[in-house]
Write a protein that binds this DNA or RNA. Structure first.
Lengths: 112, 112
DNA sequence: TTCTATTACAACCATTTGGTTGTACGTTAC
DNA sequence: GTAACGTACAACCAAATGGTTGTAATAGAA
């Protein structure tokens, strides 16, 4: 696992990309199996172009990759990126935990 | 820990709220210590009203709570909600892992 | 070659977002 | 009581978002 430093904009792009039901569903599908853009488009009640745009947003966030296969573009979910997002949330939990530790330390202080 | 069922809109709201640098910073600050809205506002190069709106977005996503204290409104980060977001990402990883298992099973199949 | 499927991309539109300023209101301090 | 502080909220604005339709290019099938 290569540890990549995420810029603030990267982080925003990742969460932004995940903030849409259709896009989350696309991530699920492309993590489960490899599918073409047109196969994805067939699954949703919206135009092909709309789905194409959703895939583009996910691609910019690097949550999926697109690979040409004949005339199709196969979309693959990127589990590494999901993992990175998880680690971001971990950092929040660390902040919270260290707060609790500080409070505990206060309570344990000997009254002078 | 109470396990709450998150609606699709809830999930969108959570990720949407986290898709902004200022808001992520507010979450960090309010997980670390309790701060008033005006204290938060003082930390950023934008108007009080703008920060107020950011807090409102976080509040709608239940990532923070606001509690009146005198004339101030104290903002507290909600670690439970962060945890829920983490579990959402966990689900994506499960999908990925079960794909790998399927592929492994295929490879292990006896050629007939 | 010709037809069809898949994709790319531009132009357009309504709504949302992230910011602003201004005004009003309750609370604390003097 | 009055001034200052902290908040709420409305109105406004530019830019981004999520959708549409239409057109063009490329690859595969007939």
């Amino acid at each position: 696992m290569v540890v990549i430093e995420l810029s603030d904009d990267d982080v925003s792009r990742i969460f932004r990309a995940l903030a849409d039901t259709t896009r989350r569903d696309i991530v699920r599908r492309t993590l489960a199996t490899e599918v073409s853009v047109s196969q994805l488009a067939a699954a949703y009640a919206m135009s092909f172009a709309a789905v194409q745009k959703h895939v583009a947003v996910l691609e910019e966030a690097r949550l999926v990759t697109k690979e040409p296969r004949g005339r199709e573009r196969m979309v693959r979910g990127n589990p590494d990126r999901i993992h990175q997002a998880q680690r971001l949330l971990d950092q929040f939990e660390h902040i919270w935990r260290s707060r609790i530790e500080r409070l505990d330390a206060l309570l344990e202080e000997e009254p002078t």
